[in-house]
């Protein structure tokens, strides 16, 4: 058997799954095999954030992550956020604030915003900019993205109090 191919098992948006994986493929390639298109390889260098995936609850660049390394881990992709059928607070805030244009980068921004608000429930503009600076939006919906993060934070805090 080819030693570069391994069977890995992991949790994908709450479901236990497994796959035969070649050593060279990355996490975005792997997700494509499960028909998940939300993480997308764009710059290919971890700089644009279009390929953001949460691995064990931590955001990583899917294009720089070898797929075999997620063996035993738990992955959340943008498709996992509305598993209940309802949009997440962050997703709804992005719609309400018009925080995207072409939408290609949006899943990455949405996932990073979830991460930010998990660690910092009420970020100021400076903190929002710093945290999301590793995600690029060529349509430059940046002012709207900042507003969406604030709106999402406000709504999440309102729910939790």
């Amino acid at each position: 058997m080819d030693p570069s191919i391994r069977k890995i098992a992991f949790t994908l948006n709450g479901q236990k799954v497994s796959a035969q994986v070649e050593s060279h493929i990355n996490l975005v390639d792997l997700l494509r095999r499960f028909n998940l298109d939300g993480a997308r390889e764009s710059c290919g260098q971890g700089l644009c954030g279009c390929c953001t995936v949460l691995v064990d609850g931590v955001a990583v660049s899917g294009c720089l992550t070898l797929a075999q390394l997620v063996d035993g881990k738990s992955l959340t992709t943008v498709e996992g956020l509305d598993a209940s059928g309802a949009l997440s607070v962050v997703q709804q805030a992005f719609i309400d604030e018009g925080a995207f244009q072409c939408g290609f980068c949006t899943p990455g921004f949405v996932l990073m915003t979830h991460q930010l608000l998990e660690t910092n429930a009420d970020p100021d503009e400076h903190e929002i900019r710093d945290y999301l600076a590793g995600n690029l939006c060529r349509c430059a919906a940046y002012p709207e993205i900042i507003r969406a993060v604030k709106t999402a934070g406000d709504r999440m805090r309102a729910i939790s109090t």
């Binding site: 939300g38 993480a39 992709t77 498709e79 992005f94």
Partner: peptide
């Protein structure tokens, strides 16, 4: 009016040629 395709875009389900197989 909010964009008609908003929901598809924030859920990562909007179709792009990029993903087509």
């Amino acid at each position: 009016v909010p964009r008609l395709e908003g929901r598809q875009k924030v859920t990562g389900r909007a179709a792009y040629t990029h993903n087509l197989v």
